[in-house]
Simulated assay, not measured.
Amino acid sequence: MSATFDAKFDDGKEDGALRTIGEVCKALGIKAHVLRYWEQQFPMLNPLKRSGGRRYYRATDVAMVEQIDRLVNREGYTLKGAQQALQPSKSAAQPSAKQPVAPQIQPRNPSSGQTAASQNDVVTADVIAKIRSIRTKLAAALDA
């Protein structure tokens, strides 16, 4: 995971500076109680805690919060699904001696300039939209 993040902080601090929970909440538009809950649900989200329980988020913590927010609030993942998506796979963490580790390369589609991953995101968004439409129709049919 990259230490860069998209959050916009207007506090004059350097990009890698520690941030309080209030600063992270304001920059990302997430409530403090939600961040505290996510800390319980996602063990990899572990901000520094000082005396009195005051939380300080590192750049990597902010990037993790952004990923969780994207998965849960924009892509429709459940918390359990987001946890699984953010967990490193066992095969990637511990490569077998028989399997060479190949670099992960995102092939480009020459006609659109998009990576295969971004194309998959578009396809995934379309599938989610279709599933939601089916869910709505099914609910209407069951209520009738």
Score class of each variant (00 low, 15 high):
residue 87 Q to D: 10
residue 114 Q to T: 13
residue 123 V to G: 06
residue 72 V to E: 06
residue 91 S to T: 13
residue 109 N to D: 12
residue 109 N to T: 05
residue 100 P to S: 05
residue 84 Q to F: 05
residue 128 I to P: 03
residue 65 V to S: 08
residue 97 A to P: 06
residue 76 G to S: 12
residue 75 E to Y: 11
residue 126 D to L: 14
residue 66 E to K: 04
residue 98 K to F: 10
residue 83 Q to H: 03
residue 68 I to G: 02
residue 96 S to H: 12
residue 86 L to A: 07
residue 129 A to H: 10
residue 71 L to F: 03
residue 105 I to H: 00
residue 119 Q to K: 07
residue 70 R to S: 11
residue 82 A to Q: 07
residue 99 Q to W: 04
residue 106 Q to M: 02
residue 92 A to D: 14
residue 105 I to Y: 02
residue 124 T to W: 07
residue 106 Q to T: 06
residue 94 Q to V: 13
residue 91 S to F: 11
residue 108 R to Q: 09
residue 77 Y to M: 04
residue 109 N to A: 07
residue 101 V to D: 04
residue 76 G to K: 08
residue 108 R to W: 03
residue 118 S to P: 13
residue 80 K to R: 13
residue 73 N to Q: 07
residue 67 Q to S: 08
residue 115 T to N: 00
residue 124 T to G: 08
residue 84 Q to Y: 06
residue 104 Q to G: 01
residue 112 S to Y: 09
residue 70 R to L: 14
residue 87 Q to H: 10
residue 127 V to R: 10
residue 108 R to M: 06
residue 122 V to T: 11
residue 121 D to M: 09
residue 75 E to V: 09
residue 77 Y to Q: 00
residue 124 T to V: 12
residue 127 V to E: 02
residue 80 K to H: 05
residue 105 I to T: 00
residue 122 V to P: 03
residue 110 P to S: 13
residue 111 S to Q: 15
residue 116 A to E: 09
residue 89 S to T: 15
residue 91 S to M: 13
residue 110 P to H: 13
residue 78 T to N: 04
residue 91 S to H: 14
residue 81 G to E: 00
residue 116 A to L: 07
residue 82 A to P: 04
residue 67 Q to P: 03
residue 65 V to W: 06
residue 93 A to P: 01
residue 113 G to M: 15
residue 129 A to C: 02
residue 101 V to Q: 09
residue 98 K to E: 11
residue 88 P to E: 05
residue 114 Q to S: 10
residue 100 P to N: 04
residue 97 A to Y: 09
residue 117 A to M: 10
residue 67 Q to V: 02
residue 100 P to G: 09
residue 88 P to S: 10
residue 64 M to T: 15
residue 108 R to V: 03
residue 78 T to D: 05
residue 88 P to L: 12
residue 126 D to A: 15
residue 95 P to N: 04
residue 123 V to R: 13
residue 129 A to F: 02
residue 102 A to R: 05
residue 127 V to M: 04
residue 91 S to D: 15
residue 80 K to A: 12
residue 80 K to V: 11
residue 103 P to M: 03
residue 78 T to L: 01
residue 105 I to P: 00
residue 103 P to L: 01
residue 77 Y to N: 02
residue 109 N to S: 09
residue 74 R to L: 12
residue 115 T to F: 04
residue 105 I to A: 00
